[in-house]
Design a protein around this nucleic acid. Structure first.
Lengths: 244, 244
DNA sequence: CGCAAGTTTGATGATTATCAAACAGGGTGG
DNA sequence: CCACCCTGTTTGATAATCATCAAACTTGCG
């Protein structure tokens, strides 16, 4: 099975066989985490860079009130901040959502790889820019979209991201997120998201069942979401969601 | 007057006179923008890196519905993404809020400076990490804080950021943002923010008048916001807001 | 089989948006 | 210099969205 890290970065720029080999080398020895296990916690001193190879992971923060906000989902192929070591301590936690296989890349490995493979360096900086774009899109969603629009937008985002690492089927993909997790990501309650999902199902846009999403009508879903895939900066935009 | 860019980066790490001189050199020829003028628009091809020297600037996006969401405020000393040139087109716009003086740094200047001054490179990567932390904090605010908490949190953030570039007075600072602009940043309406401001004023926490904010009770404001300045990654945390 | 986690539905209430309108201030042109 | 206009602020009335509380139901698993 293809290394998801290589696959993801290939979706952003061209990598040659040599680059791919280097990427596979630094992620050769992943570690397993079980669901709910923290990779690193708020307040911890940052360590190596994480690269998710299998399973889903999230960045999150717990507020004094006890409520949780998820700020990002990392799926296979995704890495956390390259330069994270520069900070004295983490301002948020990173946790496995499902069982996950995660490689760690030390700062030294990172630096030598980026020095020897300028193409990889460029592509990883692009990936970082895309991740920032995703965060901005979340801010837009939280600020200006209704609950239904927000759900639809997130599903569009996750579908395209999953697609670029070969994890989607025909208008359908595996989404191992409970409604509570989705609620924590979208800033709403599990009760309300449940009602919104019902609404989207009845509207014939999408249907979420345990562990997987079916996109019933891509055009309708994109329209509800007000989704513009531009911010994901993939090459081959024509192969996107609505043009399926 | 001190160069705000130097001043801001000095708040994150130590820079020597040589570093400071290099930073001043690349920002020596700023350009003026009037309020509401775009530095760059969504869809444009990214150009040089921007460094704000005077005035306020924001990242924003206009939705199909016509509503606007501001995703970041840039104040003097703040720079936009180092590697932005790697993307084919902007996924959001950047606009002056007030009259602003903005320097542009070309990719070549950038690269040679970062090669010759590893300290600057490290510090700018730190600044980028802090900016990402600020975005995550915005996501948390939008997702899990009430309108009043969100306003209080933003004011705490902006106060500390202004403070680190020497723009604050005694429990008071200049904030050239209209209530409409604040609303667009916080994902609410101008009408509602006005009521929230009144509430915060009556509670004796803070008072916003045209162009400036007075922090009436730092402890109370921090408490309402649930503010933890850790994510700004300043050195000298003891000199923060609540310990005034 | 029984428990734990997750999903679904109902009833009610709080928060925030929307619509409407009055008011204040700053700048411009007659 | 004043009238006017534009932008921004403030207040009121009403409605939509979403949270909260409560409880039944469903599914997977030891």
């Amino acid at each position: 099975m293809a290394n998801r890290f290589v696959q993801k970065l290939s979706g952003l720029a061209d990598l040659d066989a040599d680059d791919a080999a280097a990427l596979e080398r630094v992620t050769a020895k992943p570690r397993r985490y079980v669901a709910r296990q923290d990779l690193i916690r708020e307040g911890d001193e940052p360590g190596p860079m994480f690269v998710v190879l299998e399973g889903w992971v999230c960045r999150y923060k717990i507020l004094p009130s006890g409520s949780r906000q998820i700020m990002a989902f990392l799926m296979p192929g995704d890495a956390c901040d390259l330069h994270i070591k520069l900070l004295a301590q983490m301002d948020h936690g990173i946790q496995a959502i499902t069982t996950a296989s995660v490689a760690t890349v030390s700062r030294e490995q990172m630096e030598s790889m980026m020095r020897d493979h300028p193409n990889i360096a460029r592509t990883m900086y692009m990936a970082q820019l895309v991740d920032e774009g995703i965060m901005r899109a979340w801010i837009v969603s939280m600020g200006r979209r209704s609950a239904a629009e927000r759900v639809a937008h997130l599903i569009c985002e996750l579908y395209l991201r999953a697609r670029s690492i070969g994890l989607t089927g025909e208008g359908e993909f595996a989404l191992p997120l409970s409604q509570l997790v989705l609620a924590d990501a979208l800033g709403m309650t599990a009760v309300h998201i449940n009602r919104v999902l019902k609404e989207l199902r009845l509207a014939g846009a999408m249907a979420l069942t345990r562990g997987s999403v079916t996109i019933l009508d891509p055009v309708k879903l994109v329209q509800i979401a007000g989704f513009d895939e531009n911010y994901l900066h993939r090459r081959l935009l024509l192969t996107g969601l609505s043009a399926r």
